[in-house]
Simulated assay, not measured.
Amino acid sequence: MLIAHSISDLRALLAPYRSPAFVATMGNLHDGHLALLRSARGLGDVSVASIFVNRLQFLPHEDFDSYPRTWEQDCARLEEGGCDILFAPREADLYPEAQTFKVLPDPALADILEGHFRPGFFTGVCTVVLKLFNCVQPRFALFGQKDYQQQMVVRRMVRQLALPVEIVTGQTERAEDGLALSSRNGYLDAAARAEAVQLPLALRALGDAVRGGRRDLDALEAEAARSLAARGWQPDYLTVRRRADLLPPQPGHADDWHSLVVLGAARLGATRLIDNLEI
């Protein structure tokens, strides 16, 4: 595996290739990242991963400084996974001056759910993703379905800016008990880790209720939130939305449950977890 820290070095390494397949990460890698890398190796003529903890997508009170940096472990995992090129820019490499030009995503998609509870988050995501795309110039870019809204925002950005990148969504990788793999799972102690599976269980119960014919979505969502809160969680949202645009189903349209997705975000202690399940 070759490693580039500067944009010029990266472009020199990529010069012989025509269709890079790219996986952007913030490091602290897990098997979900490696599954995306395996898919990338089957798509392009060179597989590229990036490790960059992007300050722009963290709110002032969030965990930018404490976000786990596991460089040696990440490099070993990427090399074992067959990554061809790792792009690991320093902050001064990717942001050599204050990033005053930013990508403002469509608020209809980016200011709801995650964007409501983390205002400005998707501006930070889109800005760094566009910049990474300009550095790597991938033919394919792979994102995990666990970050459901994020991959939708990126996909819409690519479409509206006519970027020559095909966005590929990889299925959520889960632990044996059903918990979605996430870098932030490492914050959980043993008791919290055992409790964390209640989030996907709550989403599954919510989806099952809709699949079973219940259409009082507001009541269902409130019940799901109360159930988690009773266990000590602090829910931000547990909600049923349309897959197409993440808006609530229109009255009379919830019967088409095949077009819906259940999404949730909740804090367990100091750790905020997200997940989703397509119904």
Rank of each mutant, 00 (worst) to 15 (best):
R41N: 05
F101E: 15
G124D: 05
E221F: 09
L201K: 13
A162K: 12
R231H: 14
P96K: 12
K131Q: 14
S182K: 03
R184C: 01
L203H: 06
L14C: 04
E278G: 13
A222G: 12
Q73Y: 11
R204T: 13
A194P: 00
T70M: 07
T271K: 09
G144D: 07
D45L: 13
L78I: 09
S19F: 14
G252C: 02
M1V: 08
L260N: 09
Q234A: 13
G269E: 12
A202T: 15
A225F: 06
P89D: 02
R215I: 01
R139S: 12
S19Q: 15
H61M: 05
G42W: 03
N54G: 01
L78T: 11
Q99H: 04
L59I: 01
R211Y: 03
L179W: 00
L36Q: 01
T239P: 02
T100F: 10
D84L: 03
P119D: 10
L260V: 07
T271P: 03
N185G: 01
T100I: 14
A35N: 10
Y187E: 07
A175E: 15
F133R: 00
G213Q: 05
G124V: 02
G252H: 09
S50A: 14
L130W: 12
P68L: 11
L132K: 01
M1P: 07
E80N: 15
D65P: 07
D256A: 15
A110W: 02
C126R: 01
L2Y: 11
R159S: 09
L246G: 07
G232E: 12
A35Y: 09
D9T: 08
L10V: 08
V168G: 03
A219L: 13
A265G: 04
G178W: 09
G264F: 02
I112S: 12
V136K: 08
I279M: 10
E176P: 01
P249S: 11
H30M: 11
E173N: 03
C83E: 11
S39F: 00
A76R: 14
Q99K: 07
Q145M: 14
D275G: 05
L260C: 03
P164G: 08
L163K: 12
R204K: 13
M26D: 05
T172D: 05
R242M: 12
R11Y: 07
D275Y: 01
V103Y: 11
Y67P: 00
D236K: 02
R193E: 06
N54C: 02
F140P: 04
T123D: 07
G213K: 03
C126H: 10
V23N: 06
P119S: 06
